[in-house]
């Protein structure tokens, strides 16, 4: 059957890949626009508790994080520590930290500032309560207990 004879000559046309970089660039720009950069290196390790009724925090630029857990570096201790920005801090530093974060927002947004408490599930409530009292003093009243979405 001559119809299926492959030896008869035509070469397979090459796939035109000239638009491939453009496509990749489009994806790249998409990612550049939609994501926020990882701003801080975590110095404490924590496993946040699970909850089924979690809400998403809407505006990421308005969220300030407080990380509470055990230092990843054992030289820094094995007790509960708190990380603000890029360093470990004491509860008494919260007020300055909040004031500083607040002033970096523009005035209209300041009232919407939310503090997300990311704490390890084995943290003692004493620590959390101290943090909460400090936040109250700093007038950062909108808080969110960070939690994983899980059915329970």
């Amino acid at each position: 059957m001559g119809k299926f004879n492959k030896s008869g000559g035509k070469e397979l046309p090459e796939l035109n890949t000239s638009s491939l970089p453009d496509m990749i660039f489009a994806i790249l720009f998409f990612f550049m626009v939609t994501v926020t950069m990882r701003s801080e290196e975590l110095m404490v390790k924590f496993r946040i508790p699970a909850a089924s009724e979690v809400q998403k925090l809407e505006k990421k630029s308005l969220v300030t994080f407080i990380n509470i857990g055990i230092p990843t570096d054992p030289r820094l201790g094995t007790g509960t520590q708190m990380q603000l920005n890029d360093k470990l801090a004491a509860v008494s530093d919260i007020q300055d930290y909040i004031a500083q974060e607040k002033s970096s927002l523009n005035e209209a947004d300041q009232q919407f500032m939310t503090v997300s408490i990311k704490a390890d599930e084995n943290t003692k409530m004493q620590y959390i309560s101290d943090v909460k009292q400090a936040l109250r003093k700093a007038y950062a009243l909108k808080i969110s207990y960070s939690a994983r979405k899980a059915e329970n």
Partner: peptide, 12 residues
């Protein structure tokens, strides 16, 4: 995106 249980603290 971070998720959690939102709460409002009373003013001091």
């Amino acid at each position: 995106t971070d998720s959690g249980l939102a709460r409002k603290l009373p003013p001091p």
